[in-house]
Simulated assay, not measured.
Amino acid sequence: MSTLTHDKRIAPPSRTAPGLVLALLSAASFALSGPLAKGLIDSGWTAGAAVTARVLIAAAVLIGPALVALRGRWFLVRRNLGLLVAYGLIAIAGCQLAYFNAVDHMEVGVAILIEFTSPVAVIGWLWFRHGQRPSRLTVAGAVLAIIGLMLVLNLVSGADLDTVGVLWALGAMAGAAFYWIISADEDNGLPGIVLAAGGLLVGGIVLLVAGLIGIVPIATSRADVVLAGSPVPWWIPVTSLGVVTAGLAYVLGIAASRRLGSRLAAFVGLTEAVASVVFAWLLLDEAPAAIQLAGGVLILLGVVAVRLGEPRVTSGPDVGDAATP
């Protein structure tokens, strides 16, 4: 496996601005999966069936563009085959399976909170592996973002913790951190869309096998799905899950990570929780509470603090000068 992105230099404005836009769009795309999946589950789908269909559809959509991006450079796939398999197993299938098992033992909000501490794990990895000690401003931003996340998930009242559930949620967190770190790496030479397509294909096959052997319960329904108060055919949210909330989301997320670095991209990714609340309001008529809106503000302030606390180097090439997707 090639050397991972070190995040040693702060990206210049020419890369940061588009990177932030891509990261926010990716977070919004990922966030849409929650309301769409909930609509499917309410109509008779299991969560395992929804996410397996989501990942496999995304892989099918991206395979064609990925082949075009390779332009016959199959040596890149051969050279990074282990990376693609690890990305699919850990960042996609492993993360999803761990999360499903976590929510089977504990409240959904608590499981999400633990998984979404992945940016802290990214900071720890960069410090431990590459000696990049976080600045005080970065640490302050991390604290603000985590507090904001707790408010967005409305967990201030407290919740019971299950040891097995916590361990599974920590596994999901590790998978999410792996996603941010690998996505930011440009040294492997893989176009972003190839990394996304390969990882989704591996992850989708693993999830399908897990469903067939009973690890992930799979059941589907052709009943209409109620979204924004109106019934829609089941295939519309299923297709949207695959194309928008997986295919598009992963491609945008990888592109953003390569412009921002894994640390900043991971914290911007926390806005997924805010976007999820907004989409739940629009599609499921679940109006956000004032405390959730306040939490969203804290997350944004935390992201700004992390951005300002990024390390600066006055000379040398910018991180990720290689071509981005």
Rank of each mutant, 00 (worst) to 15 (best):
Y250N: 02
G302Q: 07
H105V: 04
H130A: 09
L32Y: 11
L4A: 13
A290V: 10
A172I: 03
L282N: 08
A145F: 04
L260G: 04
V278R: 01
T239G: 15
K8W: 09
L36S: 12
L83P: 00
V268L: 00
E272H: 03
G192P: 06
R263Y: 08
N154A: 14
W180K: 01
S14C: 11
A287C: 00
I41K: 09
V243C: 06
R78H: 13
L283E: 09
P119K: 14
L200E: 01
C95K: 08
L62N: 03
S2L: 12
I182P: 07
G302M: 08
V143H: 03
A177C: 07
L155V: 11
I236M: 15
K8N: 09
T117K: 10
R73T: 04
R312Q: 14
F75N: 14
V120R: 14
L207H: 01
D104K: 14
V152E: 02
I57D: 13
A86S: 14
F279S: 04
A184L: 00
G198C: 05
C95D: 13
F178C: 04
L83W: 03
G165C: 13
T138L: 02
E310R: 02
L137M: 14
H6F: 04
V209W: 06
A176T: 13
A249H: 03
T271F: 04
L56N: 14
S29K: 02
R71K: 14
A27W: 01
G82D: 04
E107C: 07
A210K: 10
L252Q: 02
V244Q: 01
R54W: 04
P18N: 11
V21L: 15
L270I: 11
W127T: 10
I41L: 01
V225F: 11
S2V: 15
P217L: 05
G44E: 05
A323P: 03
N154Q: 12
L149W: 02
A50R: 10
A28I: 04
S43Q: 09
T52Q: 13
A305R: 08
P13E: 10
D42Q: 13
V61A: 14
V21Q: 05
W281F: 12
A23I: 00
A93F: 02
V303S: 05
